[in-house]
Nucleic acid binder design. Sequence first.
DNA 1: GTGGTCTAGACCACT
DNA 2: GTGGTCTAGACCACG
Lengths: 120, 120, 120, 120
Amino acid sequence: MIWQIDENKQIHPQLVDEITKRIIQGAYSPGEKIPSVRELALEAKVNPNTMQKALLELEEKKIIETRRTTGKFVTANEADIDELKKTISTQIARKFAGEVKSLGLNSETVLEMIRSEFDD
Amino acid sequence: MIWQIDENKQIHPQLVDEITKRIIQGAYSPGEKIPSVRELALEAKVNPNTMQKALLELEEKKIIETRRTTGKFVTANEADIDELKKTISTQIARKFAGEVKSLGLNSETVLEMIRSEFDD
Amino acid sequence: MIWQIDENKQIHPQLVDEITKRIIQGAYSPGEKIPSVRELALEAKVNPNTMQKALLELEEKKIIETRRTTGKFVTANEADIDELKKTISTQIARKFAGEVKSLGLNSETVLEMIRSEFDD
Amino acid sequence: MIWQIDENKQIHPQLVDEITKRIIQGAYSPGEKIPSVRELALEAKVNPNTMQKALLELEEKKIIETRRTTGKFVTANEADIDELKKTISTQIARKFAGEVKSLGLNSETVLEMIRSEFDD
DNA sequence: GTGGTCTAGACCACT
DNA sequence: GTGGTCTAGACCACG
């Protein structure tokens, strides 16, 4: 699985986002074990410390949980994951809408642009 | 004019974006003088050096130009500015489309979300 | 290693030239790490920020590259470095030729002057 | 007559150099009147104050002289001018030789490069 | 200890 | 008062 990390921004927020995305997509499913910190760090070409920090943040958000000596697991509750998906989606949409509005684009133009992006 | 700067991200890219936005909106028009470095820095509550760096980047992108001891001016060529507007718009749209696609949302859902954002 | 900086001219272009020269000479070889920003700044008796700016310019010219938290390295590609040497040499020669031509000197005189300089 | 001024360097030294060059070439001959400060400033697209400062420096170097209410004149003494020409030429040659030596070029290569520049 | 960023404050050339 | 440059010193993320 590919990790796209921009070295010029802070790294662990990017890791958090990427893992969250994977959970939402179902790449890591509710109740499932996720790869070990070392494995993930290797994949992402990132220092294990940094990956550890990212996973800690996800745990604080109750998105994953640690079972000692066994590994880290995605939260079992599917409803929570669904809720998460909605929250993130609207966050992204809101941010996007804000940006295009501030450029002075009208909704027609914007919707058209989005449609053409989806036709690719 | 209001500056919304997030102190936790790098500042000068945010300044670049903000000024670019103003030029696209027409708040600063082609051929016109923009406020002095010091003035802008004061407005944005930012160190003049930081603003200077942002303006330098805009100059490298040929969006503004400097007349020594006189001030900085928006590029006179209106076609360039229009081009800029298109480029930026599609950039934003493409990024957004990429994000929502990677979350596994379909175009219907996405368009609906955008519409509801525009109804606010 | 000695740094000859003329305080009355802009400093960072001089730093750029000096470092470029060292790379061409092979004092810093392709693929090798160069001293840290702070170290170079200390050597050159210059503020680290100023050195940083100079190195940034070299990076934009693809002469050096940065590995975050590790250091800065000369571009590995030796052919590029060789190309660089040629480009710089002809640049200097062209500028010189332009100057002496505009003084109305003929090629004989010029060549003779150069020869005598090399006899020192 | 064309003036090539680089706005990013200090201006008046450039003016000094340019005028000196013209005198050496004979564009302004020994004993002759040179154009007025205003005229020169206009030609060079430079503030009259700046041109004035440049001419003052030339006067201090005894290259030109002011006759009140009449204008400024090139020093009458042709030997002086000739001396000047030699001094400047060797200065330029010495600087050039220094640069190419520090790049590690040998005299053969250098002489060849110069020749080819003169063949243009 | 590495690079990167920001602030504060100073000085310069030019108009 | 304009842009441009430099210094000094601080803090951050990362390894």
